[in-house]
Write a protein that binds this DNA or RNA. Structure first.
Length: 626
DNA sequence: ATCCTCCCCTAC
DNA sequence: TAAGGTAGGGGAGGAT
């Protein structure tokens, strides 16, 4: 697909012949005039480079530029020369302000803008910047545009390589302020939203490259060098990095200030890059000072650079080391607004974990132990080790599990949602990129499952309602849940916030099924959420019974029915059999527990290497059957 | 022989 | 915007 498909006419203003008003800015020499006619024939629409598969190439087959690429090279070279000449004459005529505000900046104007691209070109000309007629990652530092259709935004994402995409006001305001302003407030809204999304991994690991390449922009004096085939190296003034030589080759990244004017943009660049550096520093356990100086010789700045150098090897992983321009293309790799770092948001880490359902689940047990320290050991034996000694005629285990806990808690007071398909996840963004944590049973009936992306779930169930997490409520309901369990049973073994085993062998309520129903009713009355229960003579069978009972039910598996129950049960249903063990067993044509029972324990251990609790379950399983 | 650490796998 | 963490069982193998 050609990038420029819908913008040729607009960008044609950049072609020499189609924009006569700008001709005075170009060389008026005769040769160029001839070229203008040629270039006007087609390449004007090729602003996004020679990757276009436009049929226009055929127009050049018989031209002096037999190769389209070389034609573009020549043309661009000429345009650069024209620009330089214009800049030179502008300078000599005294029209230059003498303030190189845009030193190191090279803009590419995409689409219609106010002011026009030629006016913007004029600002660049006057204030030490550069103007690219055609997009090139090698040369362009900022893309300027006002409004773009969605298709172009999409292409920008794909091709801009992380370059700033900013509104023309950035140029105007910088000129008005007589200094280079940060582009961040001027970022194109359409992309600002996008850039606030999940950052690329390189965001956290390439800031050094980004800083370096911003400063050592090839357009100005500084160069991004590829000193050898294996490494992309950005040189630095030795005064900025005394430690450079001591760094390992692989860790070296330095910055060269060949052009004194380049320092003009240091401050802005460092402000913009600060978040990236911070991220990097965190990753290396280095504390970076908050304030970054614009003075290259400032100790703080030096420290920043040194820090960059020491961690650049991480960034190298994400760059094409053979192509310096690729390093340049990553120059603005950090999201400009909401940074994923503690620099912009000191509570970022804390908030991250507060919003993590897995963190909630993973740390819940510790909270439970603090609340019920006496029962933290559960039955006093491990869940998987219900030995034959522990199982007797009186033994009764209830496994109780709340139904689609994360969803139920959230919608318990929203009666309008009770019978609708609902899922819990962080976002209901139109792209459907959020991951579903839990789905209620109406949603599951449509095939919606936890772990699914919203977009996939909505294909299966377009009317799916997405609700956010409520971790506070989960905590509260879990407490209520366990209060009830402990009230009815003194042998409680917690599995998770919504799931537990009860050893009710000694319960005053003689009938475990009756007790289970009493507990479930109390849970519903107290929490507004349903729970399901499985009752059996051991934990394994109780747990399996719960699966049958769900949702909002209970199931008792008497000892004499265990054999039948297990016979056709898929091995994956056994707790402890995950995808790895399932695959290993499947490889040997073992798919059901009935088939599994035919395998000797020794053989089984050999197959699955006996390193998982599944072995214990299987032993138990065999014990039950034998 | 026992302890310790690492790793794999699993569950929530 | 999204927030893929945390704990535990068990075997292998090295250290003591």
């Amino acid at each position: 697909m050609s990038f420029n498909s819908d913008s040729k006419s607009k960008r044609s203003s950049k072609s020499i012949s189609s924009n006569p008003s700008s001709s005075s800015n170009y060389s008026s020499d005769g040769r160029n005039s001839n070229k203008k006619k040629k270039t006007a024939q087609k390449p004007q629409g090729m602003a996004w480079g020679s990757n276009s598969r436009s049929s226009s190439r055929s127009a050049f087959r018989n031209s002096p530029f037999s190769d389209f690429g070389s034609y573009m090279v020549v043309k661009n070279q000429k345009l650069h020369e024209q620009f330089d000449a214009a800049a030179s004459s502008s300078s000599h005529s005294g029209s230059s302000s003498g303030n190189s505000i845009f030193c190191g900046v090279s803009i590419f104007v995409d689409g219609y803008t106010v002011p026009s691209s030629q006016e913007l070109r004029g600002y660049m000309l006057k204030h030490g910047g550069r103007f690219e007629n055609y997009f090139s990652r090698h040369h362009v530092t900022h893309i300027i545009c006002s409004n773009l259709p969605d298709s172009k935004i999409k292409n920008l994402r794909a091709f801009s390589g992380g370059l700033p995409v900013v509104k023309p006001a950035w140029v105007l305001d910088s000129v008005a302020a007589n200094k280079l302003l940060s582009w961040i407030p001027y970022q194109l809204d359409q992309l600002a939203t996008e850039n606030d999304n999940q950052p690329k991994l390189s965001t956290f690991f390439t800031p050094k490259i980004g800083v370096a390449s911003e400063i050592a922009n090839p357009i100005v004096g500084g160069q991004v060098h590829s000193e050898n085939n294996d490494q992309s190296m950005v040189k630095v003034d030795s005064s900025l990095s005394e430690d450079y030589a001591s760094l390992d080759q692989a860790d070296r990244c330095s910055v060269e200030f060949n052009d004194p004017l380049q320092r003009n943009i240091d401050k802005v660049m460092f402000e913009e890059a600060a978040c990236c550096v911070e991220s990097s520093c965190e990753s290396k356990g280095i504390e970076l000072r908050d304030s970054l100086s614009s003075d290259g010789k400032d100790p703080d700045l030096k420290q920043s650079y040194d820090t960059c150098q020491s961690s650049v090897s991480l960034g190298n992983n994400t760059l094409d080391n053979h192509n310096p321009s690729e390093a340049s293309s990553s120059r603005i790799s950090c999201p400009p607004k909401k940074h994923h770092s503690t620099l912009a948001d000191p509570n970022f880490v804390e908030n991250y974990f507060k919003s993590s359902r897995l963190h909630f689940i993973g740390t819940w047990r510790n909270r439970y132990r603090k609340r019920f320290p006496s029962s933290s050991n559960g039955f006093g034996y491990k869940s998987s080790s219900v030995s034959s000694a522990a199982v007797n005629e009186k033994t009764a285990i209830i496994h109780i599990d709340m139904d689609s806990f994360f969803v139920s808690v959230v919608i318990r007071n929203r009666t309008e949602l009770l019978d609708k398909p609902v899922a819990v996840c962080h976002s209901d963004n139109p792209r459907g990129t959020a991951e579903i944590s839990s789905a209620n049973y109406p949603a599951r009936d449509h095939g919606v499952k936890a772990g699914m992306f919203v977009k996939d779930a909505k294909i299966l169930c377009p009317q799916l309602v997405i609700v956010p997490y409520d971790f506070e409520a989960y905590e509260k309901v879990a407490d209520q849940f366990y209060d009830i369990l402990h009230k009815h049973c003194n042998k409680v073994q917690a599995v998770s916030c919504d799931e537990a085993f009860l050893d009710v062998s000694e319960s005053e309520v003689g009938d475990p099924q009756l007790l289970a129903s009493i507990i479930r009713k109390e849970i519903l009355d107290t929490t507004g959420c349903t729970a399901s229960a499985g009752i059996a003579v051991n934990m394994l069978m109780a747990r399996l019974a719960t699966k049958t009972a769900k949702p909002d039910g209970q199931c008792y598996i008497p000892p004499e029915k265990i054999d039948d129950y297990l016979c056709a049960l898929p091995v994956k249903a056994l707790p402890g059999i995950g995808h790895v063990l399932e695959a290993k067993l499947k490889k040997r044509q073992i798919k059901t527990c009935g088939q599994l029972r035919l395998i000797s324990k020794e053989t089984l251990e050999g197959w699955i290497y006996s390193y998982t609790p599944a072995h214990t379950y299987m032993s138990l399983f065999r014990m039950i059957l034998e």
